[in-house]
Design a protein around this nucleic acid. Structure first.
Length: 550
RNA sequence: GCGCCCGUAGCUCAGUUGGAUAGAGCAACUGCCUUCUAAGCAGUGGGUCAGGGGUUCGAAUCCCUUCGGGCGCGCCA
């Protein structure tokens, strides 16, 4: 619908010698009285043309062909400071609804991506413990964003980056080793900053079960590799399972260690040195980040010969671009925001634009229970896991809460409210609309109505204000979808779905779909089917289920 | 000290990339189940968009500044 209006406006402006802006803004007025769609385009042109906006609007409206006007609109009005407001004819709306039923999901999406390849990297939590709620937020956002882009015709790859090469996995291995010795009655000093969670002891027990006392009294150095790899592997398994239960799956898992083993890091060093983007100073190797927009140069190889985390990170992003992605999206915890300039600097040094990378920052989640903060401390190992939250409040509710906020907004997640709300939770409100429609169809089938071939030939009978409103809302989905895609903001879909459900429930309450007159019944079934198509599509995009019964 | 994010109804948050009289959910109150699912519907109240200044036809949105909160600023990851 927006595309149509845009085209008509552009044609009209051409006809009366007004140069149209490259992008004609179309919006949905907040007041229904202002029509279905609106454009402030005349106001934007006022300055340039040195004419009053209302006059410009009048000209544009006058230049809209009579044929188009009659075919699509019941009203075109100039209002306020110079808005042009359009109201669609019911006949047009009905035609579009019929088209939606014929084309189904395809009506709702548009090919914005054109086959471009995007990699979305998200979660990427250190494999040193179970996922917590903050990771869940990143998972929900990343998965929904990936779905959204996929539906928009991008070729999307979802990747999880495994930090299995640094100090953290070292600590993990040694922590498990310490617990292992402890369980076998050997005193071993627990590493400082080690992981103290109960799952470490579980891992140690597992090792005793499978390996027995093989490593009792060993030097840690002698079995470090085993403890690290075993623990890391098990943690990854756990993480993968938790994510799967949360409904999030990845296409690829990139190991940091592998970047070293396959020479990607070394290759990166060679490249930077050859280009003169790396230099030695104070015994360390530095990357000249300032030359590429960062505040200061960054160490990539320490004086003691170890590489910094940033070194493998440059190599990692080099590998990403080398693999030919047109765009990279990294979803990071907001506490890493300071890293953006240096990673973009690295990309520039590698010969790519910094714009190739979009970093989506996901704010931390403050976990509350009944208004009281739940203390989370990795040190003591006491933190609430994503798994626990899922078990307590449900995966759909958890995801929905994450997807009704902008990723970069601070978020309070109150377990009590999330549960207490469960009766009147927004996610159920949306899903319930779908379940109700499914129920209608079950009943219709029992009555012997053919519900498998709904073509919508009786759609013109839909005249009630609630019906017209509902149809118009359905037809707006493509616009919401496009905006969500270009802004990379899945939460817009969430809000749309709530609004759609908010129109369906009152309609349902006021008008019977399955009535006495077969024609009207068939028309309303067609509408219900269309609502169901859109609800399912939206829920699927967000990674939520669309239950048929509740 | 410097940088980034944020401040919107009692609470949790949206606000269509600068548009019209700032919205939703929760919480509170009043009604509605002999007809397709009451996880629903109908109705009632609630605002100095943190404060101040500026940019313009027009600002919650952009710029400056003050206050308040969060996070960064390692040869940590």
């Amino acid at each position: 619908m927006t595309g149509l209006v845009r085209k008509i406006l552009a044609a009209a402006m051409g006809k009366c010698q007004i140069t149209a802006p490259s992008h004609i803004e179309i919006e949905v007025p907040k007041e229904e009285a202002y029509g279905d769609l609106s454009t402030p385009v005349a106001m934007g042109l006022a300055k340039e043309l040195r004419r009053p906006p209302r006059k410009i609007a009048e000209d544009i409206v006058r230049c809209i062909g009579e044929k188009e006007r009659d075919e699509y609109f019941s009203r075109i009005e100039i209002a306020g400071a110079g808005f042009i407001n359009f109201t669609f004819r019911d006949e047009f709306i009905h035609r579009e609804l019929k088209r939606l039923l014929a084309e189904r999901e395809n009506f709702l999406k548009s090919d914005i991506g054109g086959g471009l390849r995007i990699q979305v990297e998200f979660v990427s939590a250190n494999p040193t413990g179970p996922l917590h709620l903050g990771h869940g937020r990143g998972a929900a956002v990343g998965a929904a964003l990936s779905n959204l882009l996929m539906k928009a015709g991008f070729r999307v790859e979802k990747e999880y980056y495994i930090n299995d090469a640094g100090r953290q996995v070292g600590l993990l291995g040694e922590s498990v080793f310490a617990r292992y010795q402890e369980l076998l009655g050997i005193g071993y000093p627990f590493p400082e900053d080690g992981y103290r969670g109960g799952y470490i002891i579980d891992l140690a027990r597992e090792i005793i079960a499978s390996e027995g006392e093989k490593y009792k009294n060993f030097d840690y150095i002698a079995c470090e590799k085993f403890f690290k790899e075993y623990s890391c592997g098990r943690m990854l398994e756990l993480i993968r399972k938790d994510l799967e239960a949360f409904g999030v799956v990845f296409d690829t898992w990139q190991s940091e260690k592998e970047l070293y083993e396959t020479g990607v890091v070394a290759e990166m060093f060679r490249y930077l040195r050859e280009k003169g983007f790396a230099y030695e100073s104070e015994g360390a190797m530095w990357f000249s980040a300032t030359r590429f927009g960062d505040e200061k140069d960054r160490v990539i190889e320490k004086a003691n010969g170890e590489y910094t985390y940033f070194a493998s990170d440059i190599a990692y992003h080099k590998k990403k671009v080398d693999r030919g992605f047109d765009e990279l999206i990294d979803i990071w915890g907001a506490d890493h925001h300071g890293y953006i300039p240096r990673v973009k600097a690295a990309l520039r040094a590698l010969g790519y634009s910094g714009d190739k990378l979009t970093v989506v920052l996901v704010q931390m989640v403050a976990l509350l229970r009944g208004g009281v903060p739940v203390q989370m401390s990795k040190r003591s190992g006491e933190f609430v896991t994503l798994r626990e939250v899922m078990d307590e409040v449900g995966a759909d509710t958890t995801k929905f809460i994450f997807l009704t906020r902008r990723p970069d907004s601070h978020l309070e997640f109150d377990l009590e409210t999330a549960k207490a709300q469960s009766a009147e939770n927004p996610v159920f409100y949306v899903q319930y609309a779908n379940a109700r429609i499914s129920s209608i169809f079950r009943n219709a089938r029992e009555r012997g109505i053919d519900v498998d071939n709904i073509a919508g030939e009786n759609i013109p009978l839909l005249k009630e204000p609630e019906e017209i409103r509902l149809i118009k809302k359905l037809l707006l989905y493509p616009m919401v979808f496009e905006n969500a895609v270009t802004a990379r903001e899945p939460h817009r879909i969430t809000y749309y779905l709530q609004e759609l459900a908010g129109l369906f429930h009152p309609y349902y309450n006021r008008h019977r779909v399955l009535g006495e007159e077969p024609e009207l019944t068939s028309a309303r079934l067609a509408l219900a089917e269309a609502v169901r198509i859109v609800l399912r599509e939206g829920l699927e995009t967000l990674g939520l289920t669309a239950p048929e019964r509740m």
